Amino acid sequence: MANTPQSKKRARQNERRHLINKARRSRIRTHLRRVEEAIASGDAEAAQTALRAAQPELMRGVTKGVVHKNTAARKMSRLSNRVKALGQ
């Protein structure tokens, strides 16, 4: 358990950040799942729309430190390739 005032404050801050990051990660996963579902249904227009909505959410996660930059780039690249293939 935290003993010093500084370590007690860090524990409080960590708990708060954990909840915020958890919510943000959940939001990102929801957007990615919507793209996956649109791809699975075969609806190219819905997949394109979902991808456009997911991209800023994923990049916001990178800015906030929830997702690594290369992970986000890899996910966007793979999803956009699948959406592109769906449209052809």
Rank of each mutant, 00 (worst) to 15 (best):
K8V: 13
T71S: 10
A54C: 05
E45Q: 12
H31I: 00
R24L: 15
Q88G: 12
A38M: 08
A40F: 01
E36R: 13
S80V: 02
R10C: 02
N14I: 01
A46T: 09
Q48M: 07
V62A: 02
S26F: 07
A72W: 01
Q88M: 12
A54R: 00
G42D: 05
R24F: 11
G61R: 02
P56G: 12
R16L: 13
R25Q: 14
G61C: 05
P56M: 07
I20T: 14
L51V: 09
R74Q: 06
S26G: 15
L86M: 08
A50T: 04
S7G: 03
R52H: 12
S77I: 04
Q13G: 01
T30D: 10
P5S: 02
T30V: 14
T49H: 07
R10F: 02
V83M: 00
H68Y: 08
R34N: 13
R33E: 15
G42E: 06
L51N: 03
R52K: 13
R16W: 09
L79Q: 09
Q88F: 05
H31C: 09
H68T: 04
A72I: 06
Q6G: 09
R17A: 12
I20N: 03
N14Q: 13
I39K: 03
R24D: 15
I39L: 12
K75V: 15
N70A: 10
A38W: 02
R74K: 13
R74V: 01
H31F: 12
S77H: 08
N21V: 06
A38S: 13
G61V: 02
R74E: 03
T4F: 07
R10N: 13
A85E: 15
T63W: 09
K64A: 10
E37V: 08
A46W: 02
Q13A: 11
R17M: 10
K75H: 11
V83P: 00
R74D: 05
Q88T: 12
S26N: 14
